[in-house]
Amino acid sequence: MFKEFNLGEIVKQLAKNDDSSLEELFNYYYPRLYNFSKSFLKIEEGIDDILQEVFVKIWQNRKKINNSATFNSYIFTITRNLLLNELRSRLNNQNIKEEVRKLSVAQEYLSFNLYEYQELKEKVDKLINEIPDRQKEIFVLSRNEGLTHKEIAEKLGITTKTVEYHMSAALRFIREELKVYGVVSLLYFYLFF
């Protein structure tokens, strides 16, 4: 699992037209680039095409890449340019933009297609205060600070598993409560109009 990854050596081999070094680079970078691209673009479709372009460009410019530092800045430059261009063109398409919106919004708002989110947000904030302190602490770190489960675990000195347990418990509670709220508000609507 823990294979020695010596970037400097691989980059040197790459400049010598070594196909196998490209494969090593791919094996190391592909999952990492994929995660990064997915977080940034939200939609998984099309990521492989972008990453293909990244690796082909690296191969084409292998002679100019002579150490790991230039490699690092080079791969970042290509990837970020391709990703931002792609995201911009997607945001200009209303359907895709809506897709991106859904995927970038926190889970607790997912099952609601309501646009009165201000009202919804107030309700969620209220519900957060009803959950136990530990759960609340973890949930706030995730939602307000944008920390990953791993980051929260490190920060609180607990395991990632514990974080995940508390997060799902908090989410379940909020969702259930919101469902009731959604139904109630609909009833309310029908009674008065």
Binding site: L103, S104, A106, Y117, Q118
Partner: peptide
């Protein structure tokens, strides 16, 4: 928050 997919729905238009 965008990157971590924890946006509040009302924040999306601004970041987009």
């Amino acid at each position: 928050k965008y990157y971590r997919s924890v946006l509040v729905p009302g924040d999306f238009p601004e970041i987009a």
